[in-house]
Design a protein around this nucleic acid. Structure first.
Length: 880
RNA sequence: GGGCGGUUAGCUCAGCGGUAGAGCGGCACGUUUACACCGUGUUGGUCGGGGGUUCGAUUCCCUCACCGCCCACCA
């Protein structure tokens, strides 16, 4: 390996490897492979979308799963694609045309407009796909799909026809959520209830039979009074019993309307009277149905008033009309008080304006397989959610499921495959193919809800061979906000059309919030551009930083500092490897067990632990824990401790040095593989840099770390061969404490950490010479003398360590008083701990009831503390 | 109105019945065989409040408070 730079420079490395991986077809799934299958379908981002941190979180997790599966010897398909995103895309293109050409889509006409959308898509769409590549995503790009691909579109229409023929899709005039800006119906899921400050207007309706007597009604919508067809009160409400069956004068558009009794009215609210406006409220509509009331619609589709009878209001926007209506009522003396009121108003998810409940002709779907879908998720089902609590949310939604309004008054999307006979609008042709005598028919102008195509994603994206091998998919990774939009619907569609649950495990990520806990959003401008972060910290740094702080399914507070840490970790990995390369020598030599030091054995044991911890954490979808375990192992245990300790071996005999290098290579080889799913680029670079790819050439594709075997925990044979025992761990621990005590001595006596000093150890047990050598290095000592019969002069700083008494002789440099004070403080501390332990043991209940090992532990502690205390006191006395 | 999550060191988060943990930050010292995107040492916490169960509670139960989500037709 040639000389490498001091700091890791990700840019060139990342570009190089991604290109190589693509050229090698490393991500391409082979349907005919004999290897076991592992598959994920990506939640298709909107074709208008650009990469957000949410995508980074999401796709990094999927990439980790996919890459690890490859290392486990599976045939992996990670199927990517893009969603046509009906409203979002249509809006973007319409806005562009309006801005650049001052035209509306209607000016252009349907065909031309659609041509423009496709044109836009070819030119600007799917930017996000290129961005995912920058992140390192190992998707099978040869299988990339778009929800408007010809084959996919056909499948969507086929599904419509099939469900229609099964009687599950029907057309009906019903109350829907109307978006007055996008001019389309929306599903219930696309409506966001939002608390709004508004006013409650008290309006007086005069009784027809008793002029001069009024019924007062509290309403938030005086602009819809012209659409009132009745007043409703609770039948048991004594206040209004005498008015039941009578009539009142409707204000503004003066007419007689009845007073009816309905159980649904809450006598506590307002005045206990509801004005019934069936055309503009779902509840009112139902009341109207119950009482056979007419429906009067006073709104245009765009939310302006449609009521020529009241010219003052006609044509006004609904919110302008609201204020105006209040003024008009006040002028005619029909407005009582007006009080502030907070209510929940449904907003359009896309347009961001209040939706309007509106009666219209739409297509609806009665969901298939609801019961099976419920049974499929949970401990007894084929699908598990993680975290499990989302299962409850899912079950609750399915329990109360409503029919799905699937038609949209848009142009961009899958056109509804229904034709109406021109001579008989009641006659329908429902088929994927248009009728033979097309000129006599008119196709339904509407398109289908985007989600009506997304719910087929896990299987309609696959050809037969792919499906045979990779369906059902293994994991689904997504955010919990689309649990109803997408996850639940895919389960129902999967059951209906494949007879199987479409995936096995669903992992829900958390939401990424900003430093103040706010949701990331474009309008707040608090969402950093992941590409900027990649440029600054590298894709690996971004991935690792994010994974290390992304707790399982909890929301994440984003802080760029954490991405910086990810970058720092990459750099540490880079330099630790560079250190290895600077030692030269044969790569991956055989480890000679007889030559292993306790440090070697210790780090091998730690590696074994790390392999187990990381593997377990990944199996539990606990990505942050896996990342954290690797961080700790590599940085604290391997670099800070082992690498420093091994510098003694590296400076000693060539035989010993070779053995140490062999251990280092073993550790690096394993660590790089463990890290690869998190940090794909740098691990590949270093894998090659160390020449590890050479040794694995016999294995298929092993020229890349991507296909290197996932590390296995060491088995007992291995451990006995290398004589790895818990004793080694204990000794390493003792050594660690000794070094720390020595460093602290330095610190307490203000000796600069770079000053080489001589330490003396009065060993409590025999110590091999190589151990004292590494102790010396770790202490940055001029030398370390092992003197069993050392007699310290009074006042020599000393520390009691598990390996013996450690002295730091510094004639004349010691402040006796300060040292005594330090010891005094320590004595006080130990005395408290000792007292605590004794108190515990004095508690008869504790001794009698606590488990034996716990009691024994406390006895041991008491003993240890007493011993330590005695020694400390002796040391203090020795200072004179 | 229901349901769910959260509240632990200055910050971001682990831990979830047996002496309070990590990383970052702060402070001090430092360029010593890779790394200042670094090293060494060190300072930070009545584990949201109040009750209860237990020999023992940050951990289990009840309750309150605050923050955040989701569901629900109160005009």
């Amino acid at each position: 390996m040639s000389e490498i730079s001091k700091a890791y420079e990700p840019e060139a490395v990342e570009a190089k490897w991604y290109a190589r991986w693509l050229a090698d077809g490393a991500f391409t799934a082979d349907s005919s492979s004999p290897k076991p299958a592992y598959s994920i379908v990506i939640p298709p981002p909107n074709v208008t979308g650009v990469l957000t941190l949410g995508h980074v979180l999401n796709t990094t997790i999927q990439d980790i799963l996919a890459r690890r599966a490859r290392m486990l010897g599976k045939e992996v398909l990670w199927l990517p694609g893009v969603d046509h995103a009906g409203i979002a895309t249509q809006t973007v293109v319409e806005r562009k045309i309006r801005k650049e050409e001052h035209q509306t889509r209607r000016d252009l006409g349907r065909e031309e407009f659609l041509r423009r959308v496709w044109e836009w898509k070819e030119k600007h769409g799917g930017i996000i796909i290129e961005q995912l590549k920058r992140l390192g995503c190992s998707c099978d790009w040869s299988r990339e799909r778009f929800t408007m691909d010809a084959a996919y579109s056909r499948a969507v229409q086929r599904t419509f026809v099939d469900l229609y023929r099964k009687g599950l899709i029907y057309r009906g005039r019903r109350m829907v959520n109307w978006d007055p800006v996008a001019l389309t119906a929306l599903s219930d899921e696309e409506v966001i209830p939002t608390p709004q400050k508004s006013a409650l207007y008290y309006v007086r309706y005069e009784l027809v039979e008793e002029p001069g007597k009024f019924i007062e009604v509290a309403t938030t919508r005086p602009e819809t009074i012209m659409a009132d067809v009745a007043l409703a009160v609770h039948p048991g409400d004594a206040r209004y019993r005498s008015s039941l069956g009578k009539k009142v004068w409707r204000p503004l558009d003066r007419a007689e309307i009845p007073v009816v009794g309905d159980e649904g009215i809450d006598p506590q609210f307002g005045t206990g009277v509801l004005k019934v406006t069936p055309a503009h409220d779902k509840v009112d509509f139902e009341i109207g149905q119950r009482h056979g009331l007419p429906v009067i619609d006073v709104l245009h589709p765009n939310g302006t008033i449609n009521c020529p009878a009241v010219p003052e209001l006609d044509g006004l926007d609904r919110f302008v009309a609201r204020k105006k209506a209040a003024v008009l009522l006040a002028e005619s003396g029909l407005l009582g008080k007006e009080e502030p009121h907070e209510s929940t108003v449904g907003f359009s998810e896309r347009a961001g304006v209040p939706i309007e409940p509106r009666l219209s002709e739409q297509w609806f779907l009665k969901y298939p397989r609801v019961d099976e879908a419920r049974a499929a998720v949970g401990p007894k089902g084929a699908i598990r959610f993680r975290p499990e609590r989302w299962e409850t949310v899912y079950q609750h939604w399915l329990e109360n499921i409503q029919d799905w309004c699937i038609s949209r008054q848009l142009w961009w999307g899958h056109r509804i495959p229904v034709w109406y006979a021109k001579d008989d609008p009641g006659k329908l042709h429902v088929d994927v193919e248009p009728p033979a005598d097309a000129e006599n028919w008119t196709q339904d102008p509407d398109v289908l809800d985007t989600w009506f195509s997304s719910w087929l994603w896990p299987f309609e994206t696959m050809d037969d061979a792919t499906r045979a091998k990779f369906y059902p998919t293994s994991d689904l990774v997504t955010a919990p906000d689309i649990i109803f939009f997408w996850v639940a619907r895919m389960i129902m569609a999967g059951l209906e059309y494949t007879g199987e649950a479409p995936f096995r495990d669903v992992f829900f990520t958390g939401l990424i919030r900003d430093g103040q806990g706010r949701k990331m959003s474009k309008s707040l401008g608090n969402s950093p551009d992941p590409l900027d972060l990649i440029a600054k910290y590298g894709a690996d740094g971004l991935r690792y930083g994010l994974m290390r702080i992304a707790p399982a399914g909890q929301d994440i507070r984003f802080d760029e500092k954490q991405i910086e840490e990810g970058r720092n970790f990459s750099n540490k990995l880079w330099n630790a490897t560079r250190f290895r390369q600077m030692q030269g020598g044969e790569t991956e030599g055989e480890i000679e067990p007889a030559l292993l030091t306790t440090d070697d054995k210790w780090i091998l044991l730690r590696l074994d632990c790390a392999i187990r911890d990381v593997t377990q954490a990944l199996e539990d979808y606990n990505f942050s824990e896996a990342a954290q375990a690797l961080y700790r192992f590599f940085w604290s245990e391997y670099c800070d401790w082992y690498l420093e300790a091994s510098k003694a071996s590296l400076a000693s005999t060539s035989q010993r040095k070779a053995n140490t290098l062999a251990v280092i290579d073993f550790i690096l080889g394993h660590t790089l593989r463990l890290l690869h799913p998190f940090l794909p680029f740098i691990t590949e670079e270093l894998w090659h840099g160390l020449g590890f790819n050479q040794d694995l050439l016999e294995g298929q594709g092993a020229n890349s770390i991507q296909f290197a075997r996932w590390p296995q925990p060491m088995d007992d044979d291995f451990k006995s061969l290398y004589r790895l025992t818990p004793d080694d761990e204990a000794f390493a621990q003792a050594k660690y404490e000794t070094v720390t005590a020595g460093r602290r001595l330095r610190r307490d006596f203000q000796i600069a950490s770079n000053k080489r000093v001589a330490f003396v150890l009065k060993p409590s047990q025999p110590l091999p010479v190589e151990e004292s050598a590494s102790l010396g290095i770790l202490l940055n000592a001029e030398r370390l003398d092992l003197t069993p019969d050392y007699e310290a002069t009074k006042g020599t700083p000393t520390a009691l360590t598990p390996l013996g008494e450690l002295y730091l002789p510094l004639e004349g440099l010691i402040d006796l008083a300060a040292e005594r004070e330090r010891l005094g403080k320590e004595i006080a501390k130990v005395e408290i701990e000792l007292a605590t332990a004794r108190k515990k043991l004095a508690n008869e209940n504790f001794v009698a009831n606590a488990p034996a090992p716990v009691v024994a532990e406390h006895r041991q502690r008491e003993k240890d503390f007493a011993e330590k205390l005695a020694q400390l006191k002796q040391m203090r006395d020795s200072l004179g």
